[in-house]
Nucleic acid binder design. Structure first.
Lengths: 354, 354
DNA sequence: TTGAAAGCGCTACCAC
DNA sequence: GTGGTAGCGCTTTCAA
């Protein structure tokens, strides 16, 4: 019933081998022959059998992009940029040698992360891009390193995007890591320069690299400024979700009503924080300042006074896509740190209290 | 080098056929045999060869979810819900008979939409979910109908989510369409009830079903209220993007500085509109009201006074996922309309002028 | 309940 | 520049 390559060969009066060569375009074929084959393909409305092709060639055109939360534009922007870079290869009209770039949503679950990798391994994926912060659980790190090594072994290119290099895995083509520490430090230094001293911190989920790096650099900046109090009192952890930012902010206010600024783990959380402050009758930035991370497109629409650290998500995603395709040379040592730029919009007004 | 099913069979001292049966679990196998096979699988760290499996079985476990813009949470929420529903099938630890749910970003391009469908057709995808508004270009509709028919022919289940039924394609398992017309009508009626008479409209891109349905129902509501003026003067089209909302709003204000309300094609656009108004020194809702569509989680954080139509994105996505898996009976006629609820937060203050 | 063996549709190697 | 053909690793009858 379904048209096969042999059918095309018969109609074009050539051998199956020749049809294959025409379709893959990586072999010298006489122009007239090519013409005839292509016509037969069109006439028969032939569609290549992917599994058969992958089986014979021992590779597939599937490229998987893993994200922690597909509903968060943070990932959407990176994934979209990567996907464009990967799919945009040959706009040859009729689907030719394109890669099939797809995104897989782990929901932040380590199990699903591994499951997706196994599924991609099954498909003999051409490449895998892992985006966003990683879990720091030792068991999971070991499992990931093993899995990635196996993937690389099977010829799959592995790229990390917005994620620090995985200890114990040299399997990775490249790791593009955001400068979360530098950004976090500059953000806090900025608030300190404005005179803030009592700063609440809404942290991300524990055991995530992004969470830890951002929080540690915040505290380091405080310490460097001579603020040596225990900060655990004004730190609340929670998922990277609006709701979490809302709840955490109420909790922080309960613990210390004299906070003059709140730093949020990311923009989504920051918006939740802003909503909570508004519901408490506090104005931003007159009564209290808020700072975030990521600088998503809508974040400043939401709160013009929001100071954030801008991560070049689009650029990072695009670069990851190119690395996954082998279209760009990996950075020295396979590791690159990507800048995090301070967008200083916070109040220059003095904080409420000393 | 790589472990094959035959290796597992040898180690377990059974035939390849038996290993296959154990792995697919859809055949009676003696418990002790199964045990032995499973042990061999673990010991050898065997991973099924997807392409080989798909070739032999003539089906794959790939499920594609197409979205127009992966950076827009509108799609992220739907896609995430669908993906969860599809992947969550068997949490059997070791990747067993799971489906591989992946999302493909068309970027709103009709060519890429078709390309992705071809790619999925190649892979003999088990199901395809198309989300969001469709393009109304006749050629593209015809091409899509033909493509979907072929997919369905090859055994791929096709589900539309948040997209009206495709004329000329009975190939589709089910179409879940949002009540964009009803929502649009109620939204405008609400503004009219508040006393608004001069209402600007920031429409989506032309030739999209969502754009047309929302705009038509808006105008119908105006007409029903006796407002018969030509609305084209206060309508500006543009992409579903923040920037577009910003620019369009400035243009609308230029055309009619006395507007008392602006309706935006969706929340993303609405936020751009709000930013433009703010930059013009207008307060919302005191000086001018803004309304939108979708009711994304952050939209109200951004602008508490924003009236929107809430579309049950999560619910729709989950249902689409179930339909794609064959885990839910299709609605009568294969078509279901999903409610669009008015979230009436708009100003009850009288509009600026008559 | 298990085994033997015939393909699934394509690629790639080796001739010509 | 083109054809012949041996597998790729698995599923699935058909027998036993």
């Amino acid at each position: 019933m379904t048209v096969t390559l042999a059918d095309v060969a018969a109609r074009a009066r050539v051998s199956p081998a020749t049809v294959s060569r025409v379709l893959n375009g990586n072999y010298p074929v006489a122009a007239s022959t090519r013409e005839r084959v292509l016509r037969a393909v069109d006439e028969l409305d032939y569609v290549l059998n992917g599994p058969a092709s992958s089986l014979a060639a021992a590779t597939s055109d599937l490229v998987g992009i893993l994200v922690n939360d597909i509903a968060d534009p943070f990932f959407g922007i990176m994934a979209g940029a990567a996907q464009t870079e990967i799919s945009g290869q040959e706009g040859s009209g009729r689907a030719g040698g394109e890669k099939l770039a797809v995104v897989c949503n782990t929901g932040g679950s380590p199990e699903r992360e591994l499951t997706y990798l196994t599924l991609l391994q099954r498909q003999r994926a051409a490449a895998v891009v892992l985006t966003g912060g990683a879990l720091e659980d030792p068991d999971h790190i070991a499992a990931m390193a093993a899995k990635l090594a196996k993937l690389a072994d099977a010829g799959t290119r592995v790229v990390l995007c917005g994620r620090p290099p995985l200890p114990g895995s040299e399997a990775v083509v490249a790791a593009l890591a955001f400068d979360n520490r530098g950004g976090g430090r500059r953000l806090t230094e900025h608030l300190l320069a404005l005179g803030h001293r009592r700063i609440g911190y809404v942290a991300g989920p524990p055991e995530r690299t992004t969470t830890r790096h951002r929080l540690e650099s915040h505290r380091a900046a405080l310490a460097a400024a001579g603020i040596d109090e225990d900060q655990s009192h004004v730190t609340v952890h929670g998922p990277y979700a609006r709701r979490s930012g809302y709840d955490a902010t109420l909790e922080l206010l309960r613990r210390d009503p004299d906070l003059t600024a709140i730093v949020a783990a990311n923009d989504t959380v920051a918006l939740g924080a802003c909503a909570a402050l508004r519901d408490q009758g506090l104005r931003i930035p007159e009564d209290i300042s808020v700072a975030g991370f990521d600088d998503l497109p809508f974040s400043v629409d939401a709160v013009p006074a929001l100071t954030t650290v801008r991560l070049p998500l689009h650029e990072a995603g695009a670069r990851a896509g190119r690395l996954a395709m082998g279209n760009e040379a990996p950075p020295p040592g396979g590791i690159a740190t990507i800048g995090a730029e301070l967008m200083a919009r916070a109040s220059t007004a003095p904080p409420r209290k000393g």
